[in-house]
Design a protein around this nucleic acid. Structure first.
Lengths: 220, 220
DNA sequence: AGAAGTTTGTGAACAGGAGAACAAACCGGA
DNA sequence: TCCGGTTTGTTCTCCTGTTCACAAACTTCT
């Protein structure tokens, strides 16, 4: 998304590869839980839903962690990918906007299991304060700065309505947050050094609708 | 995602463009609500968060809907894009898995406003049946086939735990659903003619963590 | 030890998308 | 009608990402 500007990056991994590493990691965790000790690139590719050549090229950016003629050690590769992504460490996260979606995110177990720790839930609406969601008390949005400072939070999640999102993002940036995951259906403007990724639920549906429409047109 | 195999596609729009059209549409709706009658490609590009050259190229795949020296008529372009995506028509949708996320999706206003109509909420857990979410009664998963048939549903949304997702997808495909939006953190295997798009909440966070980790490494 | 079989890692060709740059087309004023 | 200013639509070039194909490297069996 945002360009890494440091001129001397020993190993800069293509963005497309970075986006797939979490998928590989998830597949490896599943394999490990099933008791699989080693796997070939073909097996892992099927589990991850990609082409095996692409998988091998992706992994080659991390290093040579496989053994020719044998395959990959599941736990070893799993650790290496986790380390490369950075999910071996603990990432404190704040969620702003505790509506339906914010609550769903707070309860989502997939965060905790990957090193993301929700340290606070914030909402501007006083009616939601002192409510407890996923074992965490909802606090006023004004507490953002103190929480970010106290817990060294680098990642913020925005789950507010679209109209509030830019204000929340501005406040987050002012507090020192440098990565934002935006669920609000609006474009955020932030300084270049801040990474923003967006998840728009309805956009994905619209893409499906486009293809669905064309399927119908072909048969008609 | 899946390749349109029909050999005679009058105008086949690049996948990257298709993915951006909903963003343009959203920006146009916002501009229209603000009372803007016409806009230049530069203005719209800023509102959509993209490069203006890219925007113009994207729009050129749909046709020539602008006027040189003037710009685009907001409402006219909005309609053309909506028609191209297919959101001028009504899309009945079923949501399976009414946990936190499923409830959030059922309540999400962004669906209805873009032509997606939630015709049923299904869950395998009897404890959830007869519960009312977003004004819709939660019904047993077994009702899937009848509902899909009665309402001519083509699009299904999966918001179940990962372990159940493949079974749900299989049943959906068997009922005739040809587009699936998958929120479960697992890879789905479906026939080639079925489109699947996935939204993985934790993958986006992991991508942010990767870049965040590198930011720290650069300064250290 | 050597041969046969397997699987990784990578070079090279190919496809697709991004961005710069410009000609074509339109508006308004004189 | 003609001229200057503006903005689109499109061409061309560059870059990123995908896929093929194969040499290198490892295991196992004899």
């Amino acid at each position: 998304m945002s360009a890494r500007t440091s001129p001397e990056n020993a190993r800069d991994i293509p963005e497309a590869t970075v986006a797939r590493l979490p998928v590989y990691l998830r597949a490896l965790v599943t394999l490990s839980e099933q008791g699989t000790a080693t796997c070939s690139s073909e097996e892992l590719a099927v589990a991850a839903g990609v082409n095996s050549a692409k998988l091998r090229k992706d992994l080659s950016y991390l290093g040579s962690y496989g053994t020719r003629g044998v395959g990959y050690d599941v736990d070893y590769l799993r650790y290496q990918i986790a380390r490369e992504i950075g999910v071996t460490q603990d990432w404190p996260v704040v969620i702003v906007g505790i509506g339906n979606l914010g609550q769903a995110l707070a309860n989502y177990s997939g965060f905790r299991s990957r090193g993301f720790r929700v340290v606070a839930l914030l909402d501007a609406d006083p009616a939601r304060h002192d409510q407890v969601v996923a074992g965490i008390e909802v606090r006023p949005f004004d507490h953002l700065e103190r929480i970010v400072h106290d817990h060294a939070v680098a990642i913020g999640v925005i789950a507010t309505p679209a109209v509030a999102a830019q204000d929340v993002a501005d406040r987050m940036v002012a507090c020192g947050i440098t990565s934002i995951l935006n669920f609000a259906p609006t474009v955020l403007t932030v300084p270049a050094e801040v990474d923003v990724r967006k998840v728009d639920l309805s956009i994905e549906l619209q893409i499906l609708a486009y293809h669905e429409q064309r399927k119908g047109a072909v048969t008609a």
